[in-house]
């Protein structure tokens, strides 16, 4: 579905990604774990074309999207729930969801709305409320719901567990699984919360300083001693 091959990305003179290869197959949940500053978010942003890859190719469903502008990439069926949620704080929940439906046909809206409200019932209760007044967990749900409103085939999630209480994290991951299984949306998940993310993932990659250092199924990596030491037990 999405093939990233030999991608390099630069911020000015600093190389953030140095030759990344990632393959995401249709229907999978693929997780990318790694430490702070490893380049995980950069990879997600590069898929969306902001910043552009300076070398390498990104192919989505047979189409080269490396050089496309961001808004066109999103139109192809990739949606992103960006890092830090980036919801429109002064707009209402409903308006946020409408913004998410920008690229789809208007007649899908009501149906899609029911779908995301089924996934996140709390948003239905809060739909008239200003998004900035939601709790952190609700904001994250809104961010994901907003991304889903564009009917993506591939959903990119950037650290959905960031700054959330463990219980809420569990809930979010449960919904991600549901989105994948029931809605048949392929998910590419970037996480620091390695334990939850690996348990969820069909396959996973480990990123260290701009390179993929390891890959395998979620279960394999969970039991891998190196991964355990670096990402599961070391940090506590």
């Amino acid at each position: 579905m999405l093939a990233i091959s030999g991608v390099h990305t630069h911020y000015g003179n600093i190389e953030a990604l140095s030759g990344v290869d990632v393959e995401i197959r249709s229907g999978e949940i693929v997780t990318l774990i790694g430490a702070n500053g490893a380049g995980k978010s950069t990879l997600l942003m590069t898929i969306c074309g902001n910043p552009r890859a300076s070398r390498g190719r990104i192919i989505f469903e047979g189409q080269d999207i490396t050089r496309l502008p961001t808004h066109q990439i999103v139109g192809l069926g990739i949606a992103q729930a960006p890092e830090g949620r980036r919801i429109f704080a002064r707009m209402s929940v409903m308006e946020n969801l409408q913004m998410g439906a920008t690229t789809t046909k208007p007649e899908y809206f009501d149906h899609d709305l029911d779908r995301v409200f089924a996934l996140f019932p709390i948003l239905k209760e809060r739909r008239g409320q200003r998004a900035g007044t939601l709790s952190g967990g609700e904001q994250q749900m809104l961010s994901i719901a907003r991304a889903l409103m564009s009917r993506p085939r591939l959903l990119l999630l950037d650290e959905p567990s960031l700054g959330l209480a463990p219980l809420v994290v569990k809930q979010i991951f449960r919904v991600v699984k549901e989105i994948n299984e029931r809605e048949r949306v392929t998910v590419f998940l970037v996480e620091q919360n390695a334990f939850h993310a690996l348990r969820l993932a069909h396959r996973a990659y480990v990123m260290v300083t701009g390179r993929i250092s390891m890959s395998g199924t979620g279960r394999e990596l969970l039991s891998n001693p190196e991964v355990r030491l670096a990402y599961l037990e070391g940090g506590g």
């Binding site: 961001t70 980036r86 429109f88 707009m91 308006e95 920008t102």
Partner: peptide
């Protein structure tokens, strides 16, 4: 939609772009 996109753009341009809006 276009009016809402204006307001969204004022709020967060990056988020807008990732929602398929041509800023």
């Amino acid at each position: 939609p276009v009016g809402r996109a204006w307001e969204a753009l004022r709020e967060d341009e990056i988020a807008c772009r990732s929602l398929g809006i041509n800023p």
